[in-house]
């Protein structure tokens, strides 16, 4: 069998996801109305683009199936958990910023982030977080007139 190119195992799943996604967009485009070439409808560009994406996803699927599988990556340890924690912290920050307020939320968020990458001193992290949250509030709210939520703390 002729090897086309180097592809990874994950490409198989990605191609399937993209096929489903393009199918969904095609369905939506048909609902929107494709129109005619003389008078293109709202779904015209979506239909053409999603169809092409679907065809490319099928090509990726076949390449992932027939192509030369890339050897497993290096054994270097990765820290995917850090990303999960940062994403969770971001979600919490987004939901709590308005009711709790910018300064308190940012303090807690930064304190967590300063500790994630590598363990440092607690006092240092508290000092950095407090200084950054207050100074950034003053800079953006006072100097640049950005209306940041005050929440529980009533500042100025």
């Amino acid at each position: 069998m002729k090897h086309w190119s180097v592809y990874t195992g994950s490409d198989l799943w990605i191609s399937l996801i993209l096929m489903i996604f393009s199918g969904y967009v095609i369905h939506g485009a048909l609902d929107l109305g494709v129109g005619t070439p003389r008078e293109p409808g709202s779904g015209f560009m979506f239909l053409g683009t999603a169809t092409l994406l679907g065809l490319l996803a099928i090509a990726l699927f076949f390449r992932a199936t027939l192509g030369r599988r890339q050897a497993a990556g290096s054994a270097e340890r990765t820290h995917g958990w850090r990303i999960l924690v940062v994403v969770a912290a971001n979600f919490a920050y987004i939901f709590l910023m308005t009711p709790v307020g910018y300064v308190l939320c940012t303090f807690a968020f930064l304190f967590l982030l300063f500790q994630i990458y590598e363990k440092g001193s607690w006092i240092g992290a508290v000092a950095w977080s407090a200084a950054t949250s207050v100074l950034s509030y003053l800079l953006f709210s006072t100097l640049l007139q950005v209306n940041l939520p005050q929440g529980l703390l009533r500042l100025g």
């Binding site: 982030l113 300063f114 994630i116 990458y117 950054t132």
Partner: peptide
């Protein structure tokens, strides 16, 4: 400057 200081500031 350690990355643990830089990345939270980028996020902020």
């Amino acid at each position: 400057v350690p990355y643990r200081i830089i990345f939270p500031l980028i996020m902020l």
